[in-house]
Design a protein around this nucleic acid. Structure first.
Lengths: 243, 243
DNA sequence: CGATCGCTTGAGCTATCTCAACCGGCGTGG
DNA sequence: CCACGCCGGTTGAGATAGCTCAAGCGATCG
């Protein structure tokens, strides 16, 4: 059993380091192509059985579920580096939809290669499981946020998390990063109404904590934001895997 | 790539079929022991790095996170057949705690065997990933429940889901099953206050839909409950994996 | 130029929360 | 064996965060 922390493209995702040459060439062997889609396009549909898996190279999007009432629950925001379609690859179908909010460029894998990963590359297979576990962890966290925090706090939390991801992806410049979503998307992610989300956003701006306008998030007082979000401001990241 | 649906102990979990002899003997080879704990005991602690993985043989419990404010978010309820500790096995530490609410009997695996699973049994490794993906799906669903449904609806939903799981585990008799939790646990799972949970439980009882007292859940009007819960009453289960 | 879209703001309304008291059962210790 | 204290559950009352409805506004686009 290996105990060192080998480099690993898949494993990079929540870690957010850029890929090395070697990793990229490894991924190339599994890659079955590249896909470019326009903003607003739906990449995967809830209930569909997509034969492909994707890694996001560029662009942003979101995952969501549609409730029988027509309401929408945004599961999370999709950033470059994210791995999409594991559910469809592993279960029979997707349990949520994925939509692009900007044009996206994706690296495409065939579902079949998933299986060969398990057969021939146990370490990479392990990474996949790791990704799923991290995902699970993040969803657990979201659950706690939505279940227990106030509107203002939820937004602060979302901003801190998104800002961290943006930082790790090198998207942040001058405390500012692209965040190409609608207020409605955020509301649906946080279990708030659009109106209330809007009011809390205004409040956050008035407080001088953060401002999100024109698709760009500007963090003005990171410490204050973290405190509201009930997070340590020293950015407690997901820790590296053991094996 | 195999495409049939082989029998698989791990994979059984969300499927809820009893294990066959062969499966049991397979698991035995990885088993490192059995553990019995008393009701109220904490099996795993958030942040701890448990070297063990467990399968629940008997008893019930719950997973939860503790927020900095001291509040608690119950992630989900632990039933017989559940697999515990994947996060600690795969990431460096648990992101939530696990507590027994009744005495429990657990099958113990060593973390090391996890790795040998990946090395020598790709199909079983695949199952593990599958479990993680299912878990992820269920959490996504919980997110939608907490984010978008009213108190009464959330409780109805929880009851239907728990009842389904109970049915699959053979715990149901006369429309009744053990549900050894406190109202407080349910409240913490659904993001509601204890008081409000209590009032909605009373309402559900008055409506003649379901009654939960003395640690036993009695479902009186399954169809009505499902409608409230925005679920089809024909029990849409998690589908079997493809591979 | 009209229409649509995303955002903003105001005004009530109510689901849910908090605080607080009370009740019955059970275990413990005097 | 009684009395006390604690725990889980129940109920009431007032406070409020967040919801819905509704209107208006500035861009963008055909």
């Amino acid at each position: 059993m290996a105990t060192d922390c080998r480099t690993c493209p898949l494993r990079k995702w929540p870690i957010f380091d850029p890929l090395t040459e070697a990793e990229i060439s490894f991924m190339e062997t599994f890659k079955s192509g590249e896909l470019a889609i326009t903003g607003g396009a739906t990449l995967m549909m809830e209930g569909s059985n997509s034969p492909q898996l994707f890694t996001v190279l560029e662009g942003m999007g979101l995952r969501y579920k549609t409730l029988p009432t027509g309401e929408r629950q945004v599961i999370n925001f999709v950033f470059p580096g994210d791995f999409l379609g594991l559910q469809a690859g592993v279960m029979s179908e997707m349990q949520h939809s994925v939509e692009a909010t900007t044009p996206m460029r994706l690296c495409v894998f065939d579902r079949k290669s998933l299986w060969s990963l398990f057969e021939g590359h146990p370490d990479r297979a392990f990474d996949l499981t790791w990704i799923a576990a991290v995902e699970e962890h993040l969803l657990g966290e979201s659950l706690a946020i939505i279940g227990r925090m106030s509107g203002l706090e939820r937004i602060a939390r979302a901003f801190v998390r998104l800002y961290e991801r943006g930082t790790a992806q090198g998207l942040v410049k001058d405390n500012e990063m692209p965040l190409p979503y609608k207020q409605h998307d955020l509301a649906d992610a946080l279990g708030l109404s659009l109106v209330h989300t809007n009011k809390m956003l205004t409040r956050l701006r008035e407080l001088g904590f953060a401002s999100w306008q024109g698709g760009r998030l500007k963090v003005l007082d990171y410490a204050a934001l973290c405190e509201l979000a009930q997070l340590e401001s020293d950015r407690a990241q997901v820790t590296r895997p053991l094996i």
